[in-house]
Write a protein that binds this DNA or RNA. Structure first.
Length: 631
DNA sequence: GAGTTTGAAACT
DNA sequence: CAGTTTCAAACTC
């Protein structure tokens, strides 16, 4: 993801460093290790960024050759189009005078590119001085084999494939993205760390700051203010939106990471790692005084610092080394905008949307009530619209479902009730819900801790789904409605991302769109197995989306005022989690304080009566709820 | 645009 | 590895 800012970095119109002997290339290829940089092939044109990203997965080297480093502070993007004449220009124009542009002082050299239209003096970083240049490269590599490697380490995984498609998989998608963002947070850090003394790591002198990452325990900076909870840093971020270029540079990392709101609580991201890892439980073996001090600083505990720790530096904090060695170092610009509550509210939104979708579908299909009643004999679906007036379909259907004795009910009941789960008994689950329910058990958390852990359902057989085609269509319709709403949500996120984090938002949208497309492209019904968190394939109905004629309800497992949504990991196999979306007697305000006036302000009240089912009330206006992201 | 500040890189 | 010097970018005026 870091590379995304390379959009304006790659020297599109210049010849890049090409002068490395083949043997080095071979050494790169087989030397092991990873690099974010791209080893350019000899005498080839600059590689498109995306291909570079692909290449970097292939080209591994222990001794990196000069590389394009879109995520390097030295290669921070500059306008690649001349502001005056509009002609493309290289992203960096050095002004070297004494280094001949053959030392790492030179940004061009450090970036592995020839100087081109630079303002340097006595430049040797060009084709005409290939020998000297090569010699300089050798010398540089002798001093530091990683000299040309990216300073900012990031190994973002590719976009995780979203395997399952279902109503509740929307939540899965959301949480997948959150998970993805966390991964990004994990990987972005300065390899060497900065050594700032006076800048507080809040100026571009600081390479970490320049790369828009937080200082890490790699750093040896003094008086660092570039940490998650730093008010100075936050104030700087909130206040300085004038540097649009810089904002664009960092925007690539913004959307998703902002969505997870790692900074929302003003605590280091590391403290909020997966499964809400306990703060002190996550403390690694590294508990140096400095780290403790940093922790105190980050949590504003210094004033109450116990006197029993006299050795803790009082004034200077050497590096914002957070507890643990795997701290998050990334800081999203959206982090102060998209808060954790936003994610939760999105989940709530999806829940509400599911209910509304069921209502909408039901309204559409009152004409096929007969068919529905037939279905109710084996499953259960909402009955009349009169009932819906009193109670939303979500609730209604659930109530009715409780009285039904369908095979599905029994199966679900058996499955959920045997382990004390608070999942309502006798409630037929939609395929997507069942996919969610696979993680309904707390034991799943234990399974998540161990990739090969015990299955959340033990040895139980995954819920069987004897859905008929009609139900499949119902769910397909629901999915379509919900996905549409979700798409709208993401579109707004994209809009928001236009300001901050555009690219990430687009990625969000694309992933969601992928789901949406997958849903729409399906042509035959059947059972699709998804890989739930417990490792057991859970069949979900794969619906015809083109033949949506029946209504139905989509239930999300709700218990004790909490909507549980499955959080799955990338592969949907091992990690599991539960996203708790409080719905108890509160008003889930989907519209944030910053509202686009053109949008409908929708307050969605999600109440919980006797814990289940929740009452969902929609505001005036029957249109689909459209979440509004503050911008 | 000149001068200053800053911190990485280079050097000892 | 630590201290110093060199260097060029960032920053200030």
């Amino acid at each position: 993801m870091e590379q995304s800012k390379g959009d304006d970095f790659p020297p599109k119109n210049e010849t890049v460093a090409l002068d490395f002997p083949q043997r080095k290339l071979v050494r790169q290829l087989f030397g092991g290790g990873t690099t974010n940089g791209v080893v350019e092939n000899l005498k080839q044109k600059p590689t498109p960024l995306l291909q570079q990203q692909h290449n970097q997965e292939l080209l591994l080297g222990s001794r990196s050759l000069p590389v394009l480093r879109p995520d390097s502070p030295r290669s921070r993007p500059r306008p690649n189009v001349d502001a005056k004449d509009g002609t493309p220009k290289k992203p960096k124009q050095c002004n070297c005078k004494n280094s001949k542009c053959l030392k790492l002082y030179c940004e061009c050299f450090a970036a592995g590119v020839y100087c081109d239209r630079c303002n340097c003096i006595n430049c040797h970083n060009n084709v005409g001085n290939e020998a000297a240049r090569h010699e300089a490269i050798e010398a540089t590599l002798d001093r530091n084999p990683n000299a040309f490697r990216p300073k900012i380490a990031s190994s973002p995984r590719g976009a995780q494939e979203v395997k399952a498609v279902g109503v509740c998989d929307l939540a899965r998608v959301v949480l997948l993205l959150v998970d993805e963002a966390r991964e990004l947070l994990l990987v972005a850090r300065h390899n060497k760390g900065c050594h700032c003394k006076k800048s507080g790591c809040l100026k571009k002198y600081c390479e970490c700051f320049q790369a828009n990452i937080l200082c890490s325990d790699n750093c040896r900076c003094i008086d660092c203010k570039n940490f998650e909870a730093s008010e100075e840093r936050r104030a700087l971020q909130n206040g300085d939106h004038s540097n649009s270029l810089y904002m664009q540079q960092v925007a690539a990392n913004a959307a998703i990471t902002g969505a997870i709101g790692s900074s929302g609580y003003g605590s280091p991201p590391a403290f909020k790692r997966r499964k809400n890892e306990l703060l002190f439980g996550a403390v690694s073996k590294d508990t140096s005084i400095n780290k403790i001090a940093q922790f105190q600083q980050e949590n504003h505990l210094r004033p109450s610092l116990p006197s029993s720790l006299p050795s803790i530096p009082v004034v200077r904090v050497v590096s914002p080394a957070l507890l643990g060695s795997s701290m998050f170092t990334y800081r999203s610009l959206l982090a102060d905008i998209l808060q954790p509550r936003d994610v939760k509210e999105l989940c709530s939104f999806l829940v509400v949307l599911a209910g509304q979708a069921s209502r909408t579908v039901s309204d559409k299909n009152e004409t096929v009530e007969t068919q529905k009643e037939q279905d109710q004999t084996e499953g259960s679906f909402p009955s009349s619209s009169q009932d819906r007036e009193k109670e939303p379909d979500l609730s209604k259907s659930l109530v009715e479902d409780r009285s039904s004795g369908s095979q599905v009910d029994k199966m679900v009941t058996d499955d959920s009730g045997s382990d004390g789960s608070d999942v309502p008994k006798g409630i037929p689950m939609s395929p997507g819900t069942l996919a969610l329910m696979c993680d309904e058990h707390d034991s799943m958390f234990m399974a998540a801790a161990s990739p090969k852990g015990t299955l959340g359902h033990g040895s139980k057989t995954p819920p069987h789904l004897p859905y008929g085609q009609g139900k499949a269509d119902i769910y397909a319709e629901q999915e379509r409605l919900i996905l549409t709403g979700f798409r709208d949500y993401l579109r707004r996120l994209v809009t928001c991302g236009t300001i901050k984090g555009k690219r990430k938002a687009i990625i969000l949208f694309e992933i969601a769109g992928k789901q949406y497309s997958a849903l729409g492209s399906r042509t035959e019904s059947g059972t699709q197995t998804v890989s739930p968190t417990n490792g057991n394939p859970v069949p979900i109905v794969q619906d015809k989306t083109e033949a949506r004629t029946e209504s139905g309800t989509q239930q999300l497992p709700v218990s004790n005022g909490t909507v549980r949504l499955v959080q799955d990991n990338a592969e949907g196999r091992t990690a599991s989690g539960t996203q708790h979306v409080p719905v108890s007697n509160g008003t889930v305000k989907l519209v944030q304080d910053k509202v686009d006036a053109s949008q409908i302000v929708s307050s969605v009240t999600v109440t919980s009566e006797n814990s289940f089912p929740p009452k969902v009330e929609f505001p005036a206006g029957n249109g689909l709820l459209k979440p509004i992201i503050k911008s």
